[in-house]
Design a binder for these strands. Structure first.
Lengths: 343, 343
DNA sequence: TATAATTTAGAAAACGTTTTCTATATGGTG
DNA sequence: CACCATATAGAAAACGTTTTCTAAATTATA
C-alpha cells in the first residue's frame, strides 16, 4: 500500500496544493479543511516522499558526516552530539565511514553530492585537502572537525589540543617530574601535533631542555601505547619518572607495559592521558587525564553548519574557527615525585 | 554550477535517454557514443541526482540502520561490518541513533519510510515490537540484530549468548569455583537474559543450586559494574570466589570495585567478562572473556538484508535466524581456586 | 449595497531521472 | 538486390512533490 499526496487529496476531497500546504504548515487553508486533511493523513499513515521533495526543492534537510574508520569511543560521542543537535533542528543524518582512505573519501563526497545533503561535517584525518576544496567549490557548506583549516575557507571546531598538552605537561612538571616521556598519536594529525607542541612549550617554559629520545611513536591505539613503552624500556631502562600519552587508550597501554615489568603506577612513574574516555575512572589506577568535551564538539560543529546553511550568502565569507576548551581531571595516576623512592 | 542529465545530453550531442543508458551500463549504445558521453560526464564532474532516481525507481540503494544511543565499543564494530558489506555491494548507509526511546524509534521509522531506504537493520533493545511489525507490514525488508524475532516474521542475527554464558560459567566451575556472582546487563534485553540462562544452565548441569542473591543488576556500563560489586560487598562481604559479568565494561568496573577494597584479581576472586572489547587485553589483569564476533555480525546482517532485498517474493516467506558463534578468550583474570589462599 | 480587499482553494508547470515505445541506420541472408 | 533482423538512438510520459499563478468565496469598507 503506497500513499501519495494525490491519494490524500482525493480522499480529503481537496486539491493537491491544499494538502501540500497543510503538510508544510503554510497559511491559506481554513482550520476546518486543515483538520480534515490532517485526519486523512493520520488515518492513512501517509508520509511525504523525501525524494520527491528534495528533487523539487533541492533541499534535503539532511546533513552528511564522514568519520574515520573506527567509531571508537571518541567519535561515538561526537556523533551523538551531532545527531541530537541535528534532530532538534529537524535535520537528519547520513553517515559515511571512510576508512582513512582517500578513494573512499572521494566516494563519500560523491555520495553526499548525489544525496544532495544540505551540508557536511567532515571529521578528517588526511593531509590531502583537495576533496575538501572540491566540496567547497561545489557550493557545499561544510565544517571540519578536529582539524585545522589549512588555508581553506571553512569553519572548523577543535579541542584546545595545544593547551591540553601544555596543561598535562605543566601538571607533571609541577609535581616535580622532569624526565617526561611523550607518546604521540598519528603524527600527521593536527590534533596529535598540537598536543606535542603543548608538551614542548611547557618544557621550554620551565627551562627544561627536551630529549628527543623521550618522544615515542604511537597511533592512538591501546596496543601502540603498550608496545611503545615496552620497546623503550628494553632500549633505555627506567630513566624517566612520568609519561604523557596523547590519548587515554595509549596511556592505558603504557600502564600495562609498566605493570608487566613490575613498575608500578603511580609510585614509580606517573601517567597522564588525554580524552577522559569512559574507561579512565575505572582503570587501575584511575587515570589522570585531559578531558575533551566530545559531545560539545559535535554540538558546536552542527550549530556552525546549520547557521551556515540557513544564512543566505552574507557572512558565508568569514569562516569561523572555534576551539573548545579542555579540562584537567585529577585522578590517581600522577603524584608528586617526592613521594617516590628514587632508584 | 549544477549539472543535470539534460546538460550532459546537450553537450555530448545525444539524447537524455542515451545518457541514462550510459549511466546505468545498459546496452543499446555504441562504443563510440558511450565514450563520448563518458567523457562529458567526467569533464563536468556530473553525478546523477539520487532523489530523482529514487523518485522514479523507488529504489534508493540505501539501507537504514537504527542503533541504540551510545555508539559504544560494541556497536561501532558492528556498524563497520555493515558499512563495508553495504559499500561492497553498492549500497549506502543512513543511520539513526534512537536513544532507547520509542518515540524516537517511531521517528526513525518515519525517516526510513520517507527516505525510501530499501531495507533496514534494527539494532533494537525494546520489548515493544509494534513498530517493527508496522515496518514489515509496510513492505520493508528488515533484519533484527542482537535480538530475538519474538514471533515476528523477520530475519535475525545474534551472538550465541546462551552458549557464551554457559561457557563462561562452566569455565569458572571447572576452575573449582562454585560461588559465582553474575552481573547482568539490562534485563529486558534478550542478549542479557540469554547470558543469564547460560549461567543458570551451567550451574544446574554441575548440580549447584543457584543463590538468587548472587545475581546483581547492571546496565552494561562500567559504572554499573563498579557499583553493583561495591554494594554487594557492603551487604554480604566476600562470600564468593568468582564473578561473571555480562560484558567487559561491567567486568572492569567490578575489578575496580574489588581493587578498592583491597581484594585482588585473580588471586582472591576470578573475573570473566563478555565481548572481548579492545580494552580487555590491557586492563590489569588482562581480562578472560567471551568474544563476540562483532564485525561478522554486521556483515551477516547486511548479507541477509541484501539477499532479501534482491529476491523477488519467493523465499521472503521463510525468515532466517542466524546465530554467530562465540569464543572463549583465556587471559589472566580467572585462575583455579586451588591456587588461592581461602579465607 | 456595491466594491475592494482578503482569505481560501485549485490547475498546471517544474524538479531530474527512468522507461516504454517508436524510428532510423546498419548489417546479414536468400 | 530486396528483405528482414538487429543495433542504435530519441520522444514523451511518469514518479511525488512544491510553487506560481489564477479564480472563487468570503469579509471588510465606503
Amino acid at each position: 500500500m503506497k500513499y501519495t499526496i494525490k491519494n490524500v487529496a482525493k480522499i480529503a476531497n481537496v486539491s493537491i496544493t491544499t494538502v501540500s500546504r497543510v503538510l508544510n504548515g503554510e497559511k491559506g487553508v481554513s482550520p476546518k479543511t486543515r483538520r480534515r486533511v490532517l485526519n486523512v493523513i493520520e488515518e492513512l499513515g501517509y508520509s511525504p516522499s523525501a525524494s520527491a521533495r528534495t528533487l523539487k526543492t533541492s533541499l534535503s534537510k539532511t546533513i552528511g558526516i564522514a568519520v574515520p574508520d573506527t567509531l571508537g569511543d571518541f567519535y561515538g560521542e561526537v556523533i551523538n552530539g551531532i545527531e541530537s543537535t541535528a534532530t532538534e533542528n529537524g535535520y537528519n543524518l547520513i553517515v559515511s565511514l571512510n576508512h582513512h582512505i582517500i578513494k573512499e573519501e572521494l566516494a563519500a563526497v560523491n555520495f553526499f553530492k548525489a544525496k544532495k545533503v544540505d551540508g557536511a561535517i567532515l571529521v578528517t584525518t588526511l593531509g590531502d585537502d583537495d576533496y575538501v576544496r572540491f566540496l567547497i567549490e561545489n557550493g557545499f557548506d561544510i565544517v571540519l572537525l578536529d582539524r585545522d583549516p589549512h588555508g581553506l575557507k571553512v569553519d572548523t571546531v577543535k579541542t584546545d589540543n595545544f593547551h591540553g598538552g601544555y596543561m598535562a605537561t605543566e601538571y607533571l612538571l609541577n609535581l616535580g617530574h622532569s624526565a617526561i616521556l611523550f607518546i604521540q598519536g598519528l603524527s600527521y594529525l593536527d590534533s596529535s601535533r598540537e598536543r606535542f607542541n603543548g608538551y614542548k612549550k611547557a618544557l621550554k617554559d620551565k627551562g627544561i631542555k627536551r630529549d628527543d629520545t623521550f618522544v615515542l611513536d604511537g597511533d592512538f591505539t591501546t596496543k601502540s601505547g603498550y608496545s611503545a613503552i615496552k620497546r623503550y624500556l628494553k632500549g633505555h631502562g627506567l630513566d624517566f619518572t612520568a609519561i604523557f600519552a596523547a590519548n587515554d587508550q595509549m596511556a592505558i597501554g603504557a600502564i600495562k607495559a609498566l605493570h608487566d615489568k613490575g613498575i608500578s603506577v603511580p609510585e614509580d612513574v606517573s601517567v597522564i592521558g588525554f580524552d577522559d574516555s569512559y574507561m579512565a575512572p575505572y582503570v587501575i589506577p584511575p587515570l589522570t587525564t585531559i578531558k575533551q568535551r566530545r559531545e560539545e564538539m559535535g554540538r558546536v560543529a552542527t550549530e556552525l553548519l546549520l547557521s551556515r546553511i540557513n544564512s543566505r550568502d552574507e557572512r558565508k565569507k568569514t569562516p569561523r574557527q572555534v576551539i573548545v576548551p579542555v579540562d584537567l581531571i585529577e585522578r590517581e595516576s600522577a603524584i608528586p615525585i617526592s613521594s617516590k623512592r628514587r632508584r
